[in-house]
Write a protein that binds this DNA or RNA. Structure first.
Length: 218
DNA sequence: ATCCTGGTAC
DNA sequence: GTACCCGGAT
């Protein structure tokens, strides 16, 4: 059975079990970007608190954050952890937009996608997962986002090696799925849902998982 | 005590 | 490869 059929089969099962996820949960593309940075190695619930603080202060725009003192920003995003380093990362990102794109996120879309990805990766504090989340959900450019959940689910089902790079894992999806925006957005969200609910790091709930016995069908 | 939609610097 | 950043829920 081909990897292509396996990946589509997994998607099918996850979708039937969890339904459409409608990611990313945010009110604007810019909020998605900030959320993507703040959620690094942190649970989403705490990110929401940080985002709420920024909203309350009217800071959820590139220009507002650009002029917000670093210390104030750090204090407001404190609930999501790593607040000092994340405040700098947010600053780096908004400087990139304000100084290179007239402060308008929309202007990023004018760049050629692979060039834009490289430019975003050059921002200190933005790694491949954060950048791809911004590209996929905020800018609606079809790149597959892979994360710890994605890797865990794939290797537990024997589809990829336990040791594999981000790039290789992403390539596995790119080469076996049609490059469809909605498919990519939903697939990643469904993998997260599965990883949080069933394919947990410790005490995975295999008997209840929609992917249980999946391997045996092929 | 562990985990969470990571990334950097050394 | 290892240390570090570092809060909140379970």
């Amino acid at each position: 059975m081909s990897s292509r059929d396996l990946l589509h089969g997994i998607y099918e099962r996850l979708f039937k079990h969890f339904g459409p996820q409608g990611w990313w949960p945010a009110e604007s593309p810019f909020e998605i970007c900030i959320g993507a940075i703040l959620t690094q190695n942190t649970n989403w619930q705490n990110v929401e608190k940080a985002i709420q603080n920024l909203k309350r202060e009217g800071l959820l725009s590139p220009l507002a954050l650009y002029h917000c003192p670093l210390e104030d920003l750090a204090r407001l995003i404190r609930p999501c952890g790593y607040y000092n380093i994340k405040a700098k990362r947010v600053k780096n990102f908004v400087s990139f937009i304000v100084e290179g794109y007239q402060g308008a996120l929309e202007n990023l879309k004018k760049e050629e996608p692979s060039r834009l990805r490289e430019r975003l990766l050059s921002i200190k504090g933005l790694g491949p997962e954060t950048v791809d989340s911004i590209l996929l959900y905020a800018l609606e450019i079809p790149v597959f986002v892979v994360d710890a959940y994605t890797h865990r689910i794939m290797y537990r089902h024997g589809l990829v090696p336990e040791i594999i790079s981000y790039q290789e894992l992403q390539e596995f999806f790119h080469s076996n799925l049609e490059r469809d925006l909605n498919l990519f957005q939903e697939y990643h969200a469904l993998l997260v849902a599965c990883g949080k609910t069933y394919c947990k790091k410790q005490n995975p709930q295999c008997p209840l998982c929609p992917l249980n016995n999946f391997d045996q069908e092929f």
